[in-house]
């Protein structure tokens, strides 16, 4: 068991996601930064879909009541075992009675705590991920609370030696500029040419409304092309006839503040989606903090697929490194 002494700001149980139910309105949830989540599991020898804890901004204080192997990956929220700083991206052995806590967030927004065997909560619709808006999955459908006890599961495939440290080249660095690549569409034709240009020219600042559901940005008002309201569409110029929202799609209700829809977002609706964040850059988006600035860069599908291929190659290299 792992006892939660202090839950942190918003710590949830997440696995790869509740895949395959989007058509019935169930978003995937799951780890927001898939790379860090996956590497965490690899470093403790887990099945790659084992459930971890996703920690946002402020880490929890956890008391381990059994021996375990752990790894902390992602942004930089430095972990401490019994008050002593320990490195991230590394396999640690933790003993029964040890306390894991975290320092202030230094870089990025989220880290993942992988525990060998995974966090064992009931599997709901093929996943252990927490979807807090509907109270589904994870620890009783909610973020962790003080007093919770987490069971460690059996999703372990192999032994990984204590002190296994991920080479620098496979670690993420969050100190760079926040360029987020997107593909234009589905309804970018609704924006004026000037607004389309401005969207990519300027920096957008992340508001306090930025969580697992979506990120809202401040910048300037965008304008839509004049049109006659189609049958079935809302009256606002930012409305279209309802459509499925791609994960990572960006909408601009009333042209005021763009919103990127993320892992826990609504699956469809009647707002214009002007572009969609490419899958690899969703990881990057998840590590951007409130008050930070991002710039959106338009790419084509070939570049997005190339980025995905490189991502998969990197994960494969980490797999081989850990298996050595």
């Amino acid at each position: 068991m792992i006892k939660v002494k202090n839950p942190g700001l918003q710590t949830t149980v997440q696995d790869y996601g509740r895949i395959g139910y989007y058509d019935v309105g169930m978003p995937p949830s799951g780890a927001m930064d898939k790379y860090s989540y996956t590497v965490g599991n690899l470093l403790v020898g887990n099945d790659e879909n084992a459930a971890s804890l996703e920690i946002t901004y402020m880490g929890p204080t956890l008391e381990f009541q059994q021996d375990a192997f752990i790894a902390v990956t992602g942004g930089e929220i430095p972990p401490k075992i019994n008050g002593e700083a320990v490195p991230m991206w590394e396999t640690h052995s933790i003993k029964a009675g040890d306390e894991l806590s975290f320092d202030f967030v230094k870089k990025g927004a989220r880290v993942y705590l992988a525990v060998a065997g995974g966090v064992d909560v009931p599997v709901i619709m093929d996943s252990r991920s927490t979807y807090t808006l509907c109270g589904v999955g994870g620890m009783e459908g909610r973020a962790l609370q003080a007093g919770d006890e987490l069971k460690i599961g059996n999703d372990k495939k192999q032994e990984v030696k204590e002190g296994t440290s991920l080479p620098e080249e496979y670690r993420l660095d969050f100190s760079g500029d926040n360029e987020i690549r997107v593909i234009l569409g589905l309804c970018s034709y609704r924006l004026t040419e000037e607004s389309k240009k401005r969207f990519f020219e300027r920096e957008w600042s992340v508001t306090t409304e930025a969580n697992r559901v979506g990120y809202r940005f401040k910048g300037e008002r965008l304008h839509f092309v004049e049109r006659e309201q189609p049958f079935g569409a809302g009256s606002n110029a930012s409305n279209v006839v309802d459509l499925g929202y791609p994960i990572g799609s960006i909408q601009v209700p009333d042209g005021v503040e763009p919103i990127a829809l993320l892992n826990d977002a609504v699956t469809g609706g009647g707002y214009v989606t002007i572009c969609t964040i490419i899958s690899t850059d969703l990881d990057k988006m998840a590590q951007v903090k409130t008050n930070e600035k991002v710039r959106f860069v338009s790419v084509d599908i070939e570049e997005a697929l190339q980025a995905r291929k490189e991502y998969r190659d990197t994960v494969e290299k980490v797999r081989q490194f850990v298996a050595q």
Binding site: L9, Y57, F104, V105, T208, T290, N291
Partner: peptide
Amino acid sequence: VLSPLPGI
């Protein structure tokens, strides 16, 4: 007194 979080 430090803020543990970014925000307003």
